[in-house]
């Protein structure tokens, strides 16, 4: 029996050790490959699209290396997990860096939290940094994870979804934002599961066990 392959898409935007380490830890029998090679990505059983930093730089590298086409192809056929800017890149457009067109798998915009963010009269700092709760919407990737579990977030821009049924997890930070999006075999999260201790590892394990059926 050949082992399953999980491809973590490397498009040159930094640190993938954590994502690799976390996936490998939850699935020792899976071959976790950090790669930018479209052929390897197409051959994988599961695909992860990570992302850190500014959307302009991420999208520039994604387009430059043709990763957008690869992602669109993958999204039709196998389980795909977007993480952080990897989620934002799947939206129509982000208002970061003066406005950047994204891959457009999900309708909706990526918006700035704003400099005057408040909740219950209390000022909220931006970036939204640290451990916050996620209100889950029924989905196989939440299996075994308590509702309202905390995950590690670090972002100044948030996903404003157009289709409410695609929001699979709600975050609250001055606004109700999409902490998780899902459609068919695609799932994407704003937080960092690879940095979210046990809850994050559980989600990654669920992803690698997922056949893409919502």
């Amino acid at each position: 029996m050949t082992s399953k392959i999980c491809a973590v898409i490397d498009y040159g935007m930094g640190n993938l050790h954590s994502a690799h380490g976390a996936l490998q830890t939850v699935a020792p029998d899976t071959q976790v490959l950090v790669t930018g090679d479209p052929e390897v990505i197409q051959r994988a059983d599961h695909v992860v699209l990570p992302g850190v930093g500014a959307i302009r730089d991420c999208m520039a590298e994604i387009l430059n290396q043709g990763i957008d086409d690869v992602v669109r192809e993958v999204a039709k056929t196998k389980p795909l997990l977007g993480i952080c800017v990897g989620l934002q890149a799947l939206m129509d457009r982000s208002e970061e860096n003066g406005g950047v067109d994204c891959i457009g798998l999900f309708p909706g915009q990526v918006r700035y939290f704003g400099d005057d963010l408040t909740e219950n009269g209390e000022r909220l700092k931006v970036p939204h940094m640290g451990w916050n709760t996620v209100r889950q919407v029924d989905h196989p990737l939440w299996q075994g994870i308590d509702d309202e579990s905390r995950f590690y977030f670090v972002h100044s821009y948030y996903v404003d979804a157009v289709r409410p049924e695609q929001v699979k997890g709600h975050g609250q930070y001055g606004v109700d934002f999409a902490a998780a999006m899902g459609q068919d075999n695609v799932f994407a999260v704003q937080f960092h599961p690879e940095k979210s201790h046990n809850a994050g590892l559980a989600l990654l394990r669920n992803f690698l066990n997922w056949d893409g059926q919502a």
Partner: peptide
């Protein structure tokens, strides 16, 4: 550490150039 500990890591001390930052982030610092 980054391969085995799944919470955010910060590294300080001796960060003087962009290359120092790149090196630490590539190694797995957040």
């Amino acid at each position: 550490i980054a391969e085995q500990v799944f919470i955010p890591l910060t590294v300080g001390g001796g960060i003087r150039e962009l290359a120092d930052i790149r090196k630490m982030l590539n190694a797995g610092a957040d």
